[in-house]
Amino acid sequence: MRQAISLIVLLLLIALLWEGLKWIGGDPWRAKKNPFGLTHTPPLHFKVTSDLNLPHIWDIAAAFTNPARRNGPPLVGILLNAAIFTFREAIIGFIFGGLLGLILGILFAHSNLLERGCMPYVVASQTVPILAIAPMVIIWLKAGWVSVAVIAAYLTFFPVTINTLRGLRSPDPMALELMHSYAASRWAILWKLRFPAALPYIFTAFKISATASIVGSIIGELPSGIRDGLGGAILNFNQYYISGPSRLWATIIASAVVGIVFYLIITLIEAFSLRGRKALADNV
């Protein structure tokens, strides 16, 4: 609840700053269709705040409802379809990456040898820029949603691996001794102690990964020539930026919204899975 309020306040502040800058140093402005001919000529003139670089918020809002092409459907419809398409790729990538991360984390937690042997490669994998990886994946797996999902998974698995490992190692040594005193099997210790103790850590990783998987999908769409998703839309409206800057901005907002929605879904699942725990009760 508190988070939601602070988010709204933050968005309002950004909007205020945005229009404030345009008010001080943007292009001359005249309200359309108004009988009084209301006008405003900013005292200064910054390049970054011109209508081309930073369209008015109401122009961006209007761009959603206007058709993207002459006689075409409104932009919202196009963006909605694109968002759903990208979201689907991201979810598939997130699931693959998340599972891979969980499995690696569990393996590493049980074997120092494996951790020491493999962890450097896992870390190294993340230092290679995704922009270099993406075209390779597309060459190997052919362009299509599978390769996009793989790219999204590539960004997803790393935080999950690290946090799962940390979480599985987080239980108090006394809690482990307690389990040993009951002669609990490794398996029982994993499911009844280590995994529940790791859940808050894992959810933190899932939240990072959820947004990362959206970014991964958008980036993955670019070199694979997929035009149905948000990546395709960004590419498209980027080409026609001069004739309609607000359309690209609208697409950027749509991408952010998809990321936030995914994040919120994970937060809801987290709240359900961790109900009863103290840390959560303190947050509400």
Partner: peptide
């Protein structure tokens, strides 16, 4: 004896599972 679960243990801290 441990495998036969002959023991009960209580530590200085309660070590209850918070979940």
């Amino acid at each position: 004896a441990r495998l036969d679960q002959d023991y009960g243990m209580v530590f200085q801290a309660p070590v209850l599972f918070e979940w």
